[in-house]
Design a protein around this nucleic acid. Structure first.
Length: 398
RNA sequence: GGGGGUGUACCGAAGCGGCCAAACGGGGCAGACUGUAAAUCUGCUGACUAUGUCUCCCGAGGUUCGAAUCCUCGCGCCCCCA
């Protein structure tokens, strides 16, 4: 993708975007010289926002910084159906207080990326308008689309092919989301590539409703820390925006090198030139490049100080193999105590058998002395440092 | 409603009466090597008072000296027909 001929703001807006429908419309809208309404829908389920979500949120923030308005829609009504993207057909209906709470949690986290000041941010619940539709309205809405069109969607297509059931109500999901766009008069809708179909239905419906159709911009799905699967909470391969600096830094440092260019593009504001030079092994050692990446990310969610600190701490711990700054101290009231017992007591293993295995695999040391005998009895005269593997360390006192 | 299939550890998948705490692959953990990267090599991956004991192969019963393996009932999932 090269947009060399585009003016700077547009070029920046297009960075990292997988697909724009359509670029011409976006140009035209930007030329209107009025704040555009940038829509993003969210599920009111319990959120733990991570870097994957941040890709889209950062794009939204970029628009805000150019003076546009972020319109965040809480899908409290849509949640009754469940997004077919998630493929599980039914989802528990959330009660109102749970929705409110989830929305608040979402905002707390999204606020680390978005500008929540009232002149640049608008929060809406789609029950506000979807709840008011009567049957005739719904019929009218369904009249705008065809079954063929719905079946065209990858997800439905696949389920038709392999015989998985599709609930009739699931067809409504894209329509509802499309209707949201009509109501809030979106100029641009953002989403992950998995939302392309839904978002485009919004574009259709606006056109049919005599509105200027929204532009749809979809962002790639971020690959998780393991380098293969999409970043998600359930896979455990994620960096939460609420992660503490040290954690965040360490997690980023653990990504495979191949992922760096992707992360740089989608998760940092660094210029393309800068990124190119960072990723060129002739100019920058890969470890250095990853350090910069990790710092930039930590800075975004915390601050430069925290980033520096995390980097130093990381170096201390893993390059110089020193103890962490905030070494945890655990008190054990039994002495002497069997080594296995000690390990499970401090929570470094969940069962004695697991602790035994670790000892036998020489992963355990006390005051830098390897312990390989599972029967070893430990006498705690003075505080001692217990290590299990590379990451688990603490100080033990009586 | 009728017919067929299937259910094994975190996941996929062998096993189909004893040699099964259950092959193999993936994942995870640990060790070596390193840049807490990748690749590679090695070991581990049910529990426990640990060279033995206990629990375990969807659930409940049963057959058998002996069951993940056979039978019965139940539950879940899948496919085909209506």
């Amino acid at each position: 993708m090269s947009h060399i001929a585009e003016p700077q703001p547009l070029r920046d807006l297009l960075r990292g975007v997988e697909q724009t429908y359509s670029l011409d419309d976006l140009r035209r809208k930007l030329a209107l010289k009025r704040p555009l309404r940038i829509k993003l829908g969210m599920d009111p389920t319990a959120p733990d926002i991570h870097l994957g979500h941040s890709v889209v949120l950062r794009k939204m923030r970029q628009f805000q910084d150019l003076g546009h308005t972020a319109v965040l829609i809480i899908g409290d009504y849509t949640a009754r159906i469940g997004d077919p993207t998630g493929r599980d057909a039914t989802r528990p209906v959330l009660d109102e207080s749970a929705i409110q709470q989830n929305a608040q949690t979402y905002l707390d986290q999204a606020g680390t990326i978005l500008d929540l000041s009232p002149d640049k941010f608008e929060l809406r619940y789609n029950s506000e308008w979807l709840g008011k539709l009567n049957f005739a309205d719904v019929l009218n809405l369904t009249g705008q689309f065809t079954v063929q069109q719905m079946l065209h969607r990858d997800n439905f297509k696949k389920r038709m092919a392999d015989g998985t059931e599709i609930q009739l109500a699931e067809f409504m999901y894209p329509l509802m989301q499309a209707y949201d766009s009509v109501v809030v008069k979106a100029d641009v809708e953002l989403g992950g590539t998995d939302q392309t179909f839904n978002n485009l239905r919004g574009r259709d419906l606006m056109g049919k409703s005599n509105l200027d159709p929204q532009v749809v911009m979809v962002m790639p799905i971020l690959v998780g820390l393991d380098g293969t699967q999409k970043m998600s909470k359930s896979k455990g391969n994620y960096v939460a925006v609420r992660d503490q600096p040290n954690d965040m830094y360490g997690k980023v440092m653990s990504i495979p090198d191949e992922l760096m260019s992707n992360y740089y593009e989608l998760l940092t504001p660094l210029s393309t030139d800068r990124i190119t030079s960072l990723l060129d092994p002739e100019q920058t050692h890969p470890r250095e490049a990853k350090d910069v990446l990790a710092r930039v990310i930590v800075e975004e969610f915390h601050d430069p100080n925290a980033a520096n600190h995390a980097a130093e701490e990381f170096k201390r711990r893993f390059s110089e193999n020193k103890l962490p700054e905030d070494l945890e101290t655990k008190t054990i009231d039994e002495s002497p105590i069997g080594i296995l017992n000690l390990i499970t007591r401090v929570g470094f293993a969940s069962t004695n058998s697991e602790a035994r295995r670790l000892v036998q695999q020489s992963a355990v040391s006390l005051d830098d002395e390897k312990i390989t005998d599972p029967k070893a009895q430990i006498t705690l005269d003075s505080p001692a440092i217990l290590r299990v593997g590379k990451r688990r360390v603490c100080r033990i006192t009586k």
